[in-house]
Nucleic acid binder design. Structure first.
Lengths: 132, 132
DNA sequence: GTATGTACTTACTTTTCGTAAGCAAGGTGA
DNA sequence: TCACCTTGCTTACGAAAAGTAAGTACATAC
């Protein structure tokens, strides 16, 4: 009779993450999702599937290096699905998974809040600077 | 008769921010709010006013350097209020402003989502690793 | 008198990031 | 024909950001 597999996967051990705990894997996921480019990529993909270079053009300012890296993070977390067609020139498509759509919704909500409140925030900053 | 002040403050010029635009100040604010420690600080302060060292103990793993810097960012954006009492030993309190509470709510919502879904996300990652 | 706590700042090291270039193979324009 | 553009990456390198450690000025506890 077999003894139960001693390797219990990490995903089963944790009932849920705790961001306040050092070393909790949720911190890594948070880093990916809230990274400068991660935020913008997630939001951009809400409109539907995009190719690498389309993403690059939408997310103004991102380098190919960071776009590639961030997409790999998000893919690794299961938030983004990558479909590559082995043709020349290369053709690769990126889409949000259902999980990714949930995450994207949250960050989009934060992003919209910031865009809306930006004038107020800048007003605060300006006022503070003048309080020499 | 006076000519209108040519200096129109930035806050009035922008109706709202656009994160997809390179150089838009909203990107800076986003960086502050979604920085590793910014997220945790905002969430921690939702429970009420905290002192510097209390925050440091709650937000496990943050160094004094980064805690100080992040708090200055958030204060500069008007999300956190700092009250310092010039006593020895020093006593400084940090509180969310109403604006900060709004931001904190959004990031807390994202954080909770990640903590909840962490097992699923780790499951994805584990599965991918085994697809050698 | 040694240790501890407070809220920082400063110097130094390590990690991350942005910039630029390279690659493979085809299409386009002159 | 040949130079050049395109796509989706990766690699090398310098710059910027973050982490580590230590210093500061007292006060209180032991």
């Amino acid at each position: 009779m077999k003894i139960a597999d001693p390797h219990v996967p990490l995903a089963k051990k944790l009932r849920r993450g705790d961001l306040f705990q050092t070393g909790c894997p949720s911190r890594e996921v948070m880093k990916h999702v809230t990274s400068s480019w991660g935020v913008l990529i997630l939001i951009a993909l809400r409109d539907g599937t995009l190719r690498f270079s389309e993403l690059r053009r939408r997310v103004n300012g991102v380098s190919e290096r960071m776009l590639s890296q961030t997409l790999q993070w998000l893919e690794g977390d299961g938030l983004v699905l990558r479909r590559a067609y082995p043709v020349v020139p290369p053709h690769t498509e990126y889409t949000l998974t259902p999980l990714g759509e949930e995450a994207a919704e949250k960050v989009a909500s934060l992003a919209e809040w910031i865009e809306e409140r930006l004038p107020v925030i800048l007003g605060n900053a300006e006022q503070k600077r003048s309080e020499t």
